[in-house]
Amino acid sequence: MLEGKVKWFNSEKGFGFIEVEGQDDVFVHFSAIQGEGFKTLEEGQAVSAEIVEGNRGPQAANVTKEA
């Protein structure tokens, strides 16, 4: 698991990027966000996630919002 913060997230398109210190930004799709209801993230929000290899490079999986 790694910790980072949301760089930006487009709720209409359902994707965005997470900033991780010392690494390239990581793509995040709404389907990777854990929880019930409408899955979205806010800019600057702290999150933790796993990194997996997607079709277009590294992407976030099992994204959870930090308190």
Rank of each mutant, 00 (worst) to 15 (best):
M1Y: 12
M1N: 10
L2N: 07
L2A: 09
L2S: 09
L2I: 15
L2P: 02
L2Y: 12
E3A: 14
E3M: 14
E3T: 15
E3Y: 15
E3K: 15
E3G: 09
G4L: 05
G4I: 06
G4T: 00
G4A: 05
G4D: 03
K5Q: 08
K5P: 04
K5R: 10
K5D: 05
V6T: 02
V6A: 00
V6I: 09
K7H: 06
W8C: 09
W8M: 01
W8P: 01
W8R: 00
W8N: 02
F9V: 03
F9G: 01
F9C: 07
F9S: 01
F9H: 02
F9T: 01
N10C: 10
N10K: 07
S11D: 07
S11Q: 13
S11W: 11
E12C: 15
E12N: 12
E12V: 13
E12Y: 12
E12W: 12
K13S: 08
K13Q: 08
K13G: 05
K13Y: 09
K13R: 11
G14D: 01
G14N: 01
G14W: 04
F15M: 04
F15D: 02
F15Y: 14
F15H: 06
F15N: 03
G16D: 00
G16W: 04
G16S: 00
G16K: 00
F17D: 00
F17I: 08
F17H: 02
F17E: 01
I18F: 02
I18E: 00
I18Y: 01
I18M: 04
I18N: 00
I18A: 01
I18W: 03
I18D: 00
E19V: 11
E19I: 11
E19S: 13
E19K: 11
E19L: 11
V20S: 07
V20D: 01
V20L: 10
V20H: 04
E21F: 12
E21S: 11
E21V: 12
E21R: 10
G22E: 05
G22P: 03
G22S: 05
G22N: 09
Q23E: 09
Q23D: 07
Q23G: 10
D24C: 13
D24E: 11
D25W: 09
D25Q: 06
D25I: 08
D25T: 06
D25P: 08
D25K: 05
D25L: 10
D25A: 07
D25E: 05
D25C: 11
D25S: 05
D25M: 08
V26L: 14
V26H: 01
V26K: 03
V26E: 00
V26D: 01
V28K: 01
V28P: 01
V28L: 06
V28C: 06
V28Q: 01
H29Q: 03
H29G: 03
H29F: 10
F30C: 08
F30S: 05
F30Q: 04
S31E: 06
S31P: 02
S31D: 03
A32L: 02
A32G: 08
A32S: 09
I33Q: 03
I33V: 09
I33N: 01
I33S: 01
Q34C: 13
Q34N: 13
Q34W: 10
Q34G: 08
Q34R: 11
G35M: 13
G35S: 09
E36L: 10
E36Q: 12
E36I: 11
E36C: 13
E36P: 12
E36N: 11
E36R: 09
E36K: 11
G37C: 10
G37P: 05
G37N: 05
F38K: 06
F38M: 06
K39Y: 04
K39G: 04
K39C: 10
K39V: 08
K39E: 04
K39N: 05
K39A: 06
T40A: 07
T40C: 12
T40M: 08
L41S: 01
L41P: 02
L41K: 01
L41E: 02
E42Y: 15
E42M: 13
E42D: 09
E43T: 14
E43R: 15
E43N: 13
G44N: 06
G44F: 04
G44P: 01
Q45R: 06
Q45S: 07
Q45F: 05
Q45M: 11
Q45E: 11
Q45G: 06
Q45H: 06
Q45I: 09
A46V: 14
A46N: 11
A46C: 14
A46I: 14
V47S: 02
V47M: 03
V47F: 01
S48C: 14
S48D: 04
A49Q: 03
A49E: 01
A49T: 11
E50H: 13
E50M: 14
I51S: 03
I51T: 04
I51A: 03
V52G: 05
V52C: 11
E53V: 14
G54C: 10
G54D: 06
G54E: 05
G54K: 06
G54N: 06
N55R: 15
N55E: 13
N55D: 12
N55C: 15
N55F: 15
R56N: 10
R56V: 07
R56K: 10
R56Y: 12
G57K: 05
G57H: 05
G57R: 08
G57C: 07
G57P: 04
P58Y: 10
Q59G: 01
Q59S: 07
A60D: 03
A60L: 04
A60M: 04
A60K: 02
A61H: 11
A61I: 14
A61G: 09
A61E: 08
N62C: 12
V63R: 00
V63P: 03
V63M: 00
T64F: 13
T64V: 15
K65E: 05
K65W: 10
K65S: 09
K65I: 14
K65F: 12
K65L: 12
K65P: 11
E66C: 15
E66I: 15
A67N: 13
